[in-house]
Nucleic acid binder design. Structure first.
Lengths: 245, 245
DNA sequence: CCGAAATGTCTATTAATGTAGACAACCATA
DNA sequence: TATGGTTGTCTACATTAATAGACATTTCGG
């Protein structure tokens, strides 16, 4: 049988990478759940219409990610297949939404500083241009696998100790609470997809060439006053964004 | 000045493609709006830390997409920069949401057939396994640029003439109305990002290696009875999904 | 109308990617 | 324990991607 969806040449994406992406997708789709094994290299090679060595490069890259493990004489085993489902709702709370999917979630403050609002952020937060903001770069890992990398901005006047609190509490929700804001809602979200840049590859521990889902969101207090502007990047092959209504 | 976000080697994605992706992003971010020109090749080459010829390959690919145009002696001009903002809400209506962003929207029925419900779709639509469904493949273009490619499933018993209506009306909303359903709401949406397959590349007229945003949604009538299961794919570099609450 | 700055074209070379084939090592099982 | 099916390793070669440099061509401003 000839594979319907062949791999493509001369598009600036190496064949082994295209094949690795396709196998990764098959794994997360559960295509190999019956046996728990990836098809033999020779079979994959003929399906994709490439040489066996090219398939081996793809599998090597997946093995490097920890997704599969090859065993000489037996075959190549699927080791991991999760794709986290990431809820997005008016009350999006990272830890809460993932808590029933993973054992532990850890958020880390990578960096923080104070800077004046740019026009984009000032408009989103409904603040005058140049208003002082706290900026925080944070990353979250589920069961020690990085899933998100976010840059958040908060009005410095209202939330002067955001970074300190986050560093201690590891949670935006708790940091807001420490500033006397017990609840907040999401008032807008935009989503795009693109290739990860070097910074994101490193932070999210992605194999290069990977895709990120980027959400740009504004959160507000119960009175509708914006309190947070954030850009979050998710490893596209590890998460599904699930909108809740 | 050295560019902070360098380009990466040996990752299975050709440098010219990484650079093309980055320039495309800069264009849609409006980075070149002031002059309407992409920086000179030599400057780009030094910023990305590559040879000028590599930058030329990237620009040639963008020119091929119609995004830029090089003029000897002058420079390289931005020709197009749009990124459509695609609203997703409980009452998502394609034509309505885009109407103030483009001049015309055209939807086409590519194919349709009838088939029994698979377990995934049966569960989503709350129907018994094997229930007859109408399947429709449709594509939409905004100002003659393809933006979405969707496969939708409807219960055949309730909406027997969905495909005929759509072929004539070019709208899901109107086709539902023709079946006596004036309103419907979205009850779930999931979003993932991945590389486009060959079929999607062709239908969405993407340059190969491109990324698609895929939404999997279930729509229901006002009583909450599911009426549509759909898988839509968007050209990631042409749209932003905008969640509305 | 000259010169600076930009893109266009050509040649040559090196590095990365992909193909081809042979054979070793290992595993399961008949 | 022999056999078939699998992954691991090696060599050789072809094709594509990237670098390097030289110079032509075009545009624009002084």
């Amino acid at each position: 049988m000839v594979q319907k969806k062949m791999v493509e040449r001369q598009i600036g994406v190496a064949l082994w990478r295209q094949i690795a992406d396709r196998i990764r997708l098959s794994i997360s789709n559960g295509d190999y759940d019956k046996t728990g094994m990836v098809p033999p290299e020779i079979k994959l090679a003929s399906q994709f219409g490439v040489n066996r060595h090219t398939v081996r490069s793809a599998l090597a890259s997946l093995a490097d990610e920890g997704l599969v493990e090859a065993i000489q004489g037996r075959g190549t085993m699927v080791r991991r297949k999760e794709r986290l489902s990431f809820p997005i709702s008016r009350r999006t709370r990272l830890s809460q939404g993932l808590s029933n999917q993973v054992r532990n979630i850890r958020s880390i403050l990578l960096a923080h500083d104070e800077l004046p609002a740019t026009s984009e952020i000032a408009a989103a937060l409904n603040l005058p241009l140049g208003t002082p903001l706290i900026r925080m770069d944070t990353t979250s890992a589920a069961d020690d696998r990085p899933v998100s990398y976010a840059t958040s901005y908060f009005p410095a006047a209202r939330f002067p100790d955001m970074a300190e609190h986050f560093g201690r509490l590891g949670s935006i929700t708790k940091s807001f609470a420490a500033h006397g804001l017990p609840d907040y809602i999401r008032i807008s979200t935009e989503i795009i997809a693109r290739h990860a840049d070097a910074d994101e590859l490193a932070t999210l521990k992605l194999s290069a060439g990977a895709i990120v889902l980027e959400t740009v969101a504004v959160n507000a207090d119960p009175d509708g006053v914006p309190v947070q502007f954030s850009r979050s990047r998710f490893a596209a092959d590890r998460v599904t964004l699930k909108l809740e209504t």
